[in-house]
Design a binder for these strands. Sequence first.
DNA 1: TCATCTCTTTACAACGTTGTATCCAACGTT
DNA 2: AACGTTGGATACAACGTTGTAAAGAGATGA
Lengths: 333, 333
Amino acid sequence: MPPGLKDVAALAGVSIKTVSNVVNGYLHVAPDTRARVQGAIDQLGYKPNVAARQLRSGRSGVIALALPELQSPYFAELAGLIVQAAERRSWTVLIDQTDGQADRERNLVAGLRRHAIDGLIFSPLALTGEELTSGGDGTPMVLLGERVSAGPADHVAIDNTAAAADATRHLAGLGRRRIAAIGAQDRPSAMTAHLRLAGYRRALAEAGLPDDPALVVPAESFHRADGAAAMERLLALPDPPDAVFCFNDLLALGALRTLLRSGRTVPGDVAVAGFDDVEDGRFSTPTLTTIAPDAARIAELTIDLLAERIGQTAEPPREVWVQHRLITRESTG
Amino acid sequence: MPPGLKDVAALAGVSIKTVSNVVNGYLHVAPDTRARVQGAIDQLGYKPNVAARQLRSGRSGVIALALPELQSPYFAELAGLIVQAAERRSWTVLIDQTDGQADRERNLVAGLRRHAIDGLIFSPLALTGEELTSGGDGTPMVLLGERVSAGPADHVAIDNTAAAADATRHLAGLGRRRIAAIGAQDRPSAMTAHLRLAGYRRALAEAGLPDDPALVVPAESFHRADGAAAMERLLALPDPPDAVFCFNDLLALGALRTLLRSGRTVPGDVAVAGFDDVEDGRFSTPTLTTIAPDAARIAELTIDLLAERIGQTAEPPREVWVQHRLITRESTG
DNA sequence: TCATCTCTTTACAACGTTGTATCCAACGTT
DNA sequence: AACGTTGGATACAACGTTGTAAAGAGATGA
């Protein structure tokens, strides 16, 4: 029903291929022919058929973005920025949720070819670098977020350890002596937790503070509820902390909730710092001190890397680091 | 490079079409032939090529979801639920952001055919019902969110007016006499604002309270910053309100921020109610009374409607209403 | 035995593009 | 005058799939 090259060709009185040449900006087309064809295109409202184009050329113009969860504001913001960046290359972004489950992540990497994707942007939670390689079918991929070992694909991230150290150092700089950490995770694949914990420890050591294991509280996932529960545990300690570094803002907001409900003041009794700079933390009471990754730049770079990778697949994997900065707000006075 | 029907057929010693029949579950295939073909399929790891399939059948298995913004937690949660619901039909969801801009919304409705979409789920912010019809090229569409006039497409929503009235009635039931509203919008297309304002006024009238225009504060958009600014205006009044109904949770969280910073207590001095039941409101201090739409059901129904619409396009547009309920939390004592 | 019916399988032609090879005309070079 | 070069346009064959029509093999009924 929609018009095809054939219809345009008939109307303009040229061959199908000539129309195709005009559409694709082929150089050697006489100006008047080009004008005539363009007129016919406009008149019929011709739109190239992606399916056919892809069948022929192998490219679909669609990239996939696989994130643990859209509900988390950090990922939602990032997704929005990536969609914007992709738009500039007139790519369409197909967003997929893995819920951080290993099997879903595996399926995604292995079986994504079904949807004819030109490239994949992937923020793995459960899978380690090695597992990612084995599944890959050669689709260009850029990894997002934390990972240490040089993996099989390009990688964009901020320096998590340095950032976590910055936040912890800030707390120590306020004169706090018992600084807790919320968000530790045992799973070997939980790189985010490992790296931020390392940064926390590094800053403690620098400040000459003891590393009290009781002050490091694990979190099943990085949601508000986990932060709230972890804070309860900390308050139940014989010698509770006077500051908390939470591994992301949601944990911090949950911790904040517990503190305020228990009658503590923030930052009076306990100072709180988070990580991600999500919008919620700019409007909580008190507002939240946090680490702000340059998310816009992350999105840009990711798309750039993927574009290069789609162009030519030969080069070795690259690691790209993006800036971050500490934003101090009310929760640390 | 990946195997096609041709390769499977060669290996199994049958015709290409027979393999196609096996793949598509065609009935009249001899059991042993089917087994042999299936073996070859497994051995080669054959995956059907979507582009070719779509080129032939016209169906792509991809639906688009167009939302004003992913950054807003309500839309993010909804998007997640819709992706899940679509998965059960093994559809892929292509998420698009309109930023609530009229021209972007128009482009989307008009030019989405480019990406060969089987159907569209659309939550319009700027466009009215009539504009939506004209642009449509016949792609099945389900509208999400608020709209009054019977439009050109199926429509899933909650009863916004009733829900807003419920929230306002709750505030009145607490004995509050000066109940403000935050989130009014003048644009004729701003249906959400109009409907919720109507519900607010209805409940005021029921409770025998005067409708003081000074207590109705507009908001440019429905974000925390708008809520915070609106609350400042309310506090500057000679006779400030003792309760606020905010047209969504983000506005309410912004208002909360302003109240607490100004030294007011919530709900002591001012009670606050929101709308959407986003996760933030469950962990703010105080926690937020709100209207909870049955988002999971919205997602389910939307996908169901779209599926029927893709099946046969003849039937007249349907309106589907989804339940909501009032959740009372600390912000209203 | 022949015609008819059902089951199973197949050949062929599309779907809308684009890459390759080719062709024609006009031009400049030897 | 014969030749290569260049710009401009075209015919044809693919890409991998599925709908259509039809052919072959048995089985059923007259």
